[in-house]
Amino acid sequence: MSTKEKTWWYVGGVAIIIYALFPVAWIVSLSFKAPSDIANKGFLPTSPTGENYSTILTGTASDLFLPALRNSFGICLIATFISCVLSMFAAYAIARLDFPGKKLILGTALGVAIFPVISIVTPLFNLWRQIGLYDTWLGLIIPYLSLTLPISIWTMSAFFREIPWEMEQAAQVDGATTWQAFRKVIVPLAAPGVFTTAIIAFFIAWNDFAYGISLTSTSVARPVPAALGLFSGASQFEDPTGAIAAAAVIVTIPVVALVLLFQRRIVAGLTNGAVKG
């Protein structure tokens, strides 16, 4: 690469980073502004304050925010776990076995994935109320699975297809049952795929708003995105902008942490060296 080309890559990269991170920086800056300071017409707060954070963590909005945070974590983690386990088996079958209706399953999964959420929210609302799932964790986990499973199956089956068939056959010849071969050879090799899938599934569930706002009514099951919409200012003349910004920052942290934590595992090509180099 010539120096000129390199410079352009750097310029382009910096431009993209600014474009992507500017809104985040803005929210962070907003979260440190006092309510009177929000319209200060400057990017940085005049005098940074932790007021917004104390409002949502210990103050008036904490009743709304803290249970929501707990709900979000619980519901998303359970949904992610179930969807990973289910999609692991489904994807393995799709990648390895030749059975009638394989294309149909993949097609249906894709169909479900592109189905607009908003169109099934109302029927679900009615159904959930009648069978008692309204405003419960399970009432959100099930629709979240419908969001996360299709994409999980697709990504995971792509990962499984990458694993050479011989690995498994070698294990079988070495004396492993099908289940042992799956557990001792395929799963460790598919680990990066499982992590990637888990993170994607977690994001999807974490970011959901439509189900969260429609299928819950109290802090028993209301997730964070829905709770953010219900924040109110100190008085009816005041916007809760600062508090929302602070909550948004807190909600972003686990997502960023997850990516930073697992990025090496995601990137690592673990199958490297399995076959001839």
Binding site: P164, M167, Q169, A170, A171, V173, D174, A176, P188, L270
Partner: peptide, 16 residues
């Protein structure tokens, strides 16, 4: 696994 044979594969199929 019940045949008790051992095999060397063309691409070795080592567990990475």
């Amino acid at each position: 696994r019940e045949r008790n044979l051992s095999m060397v594969f063309q691409n070795y199929a080592l567990y990475p």
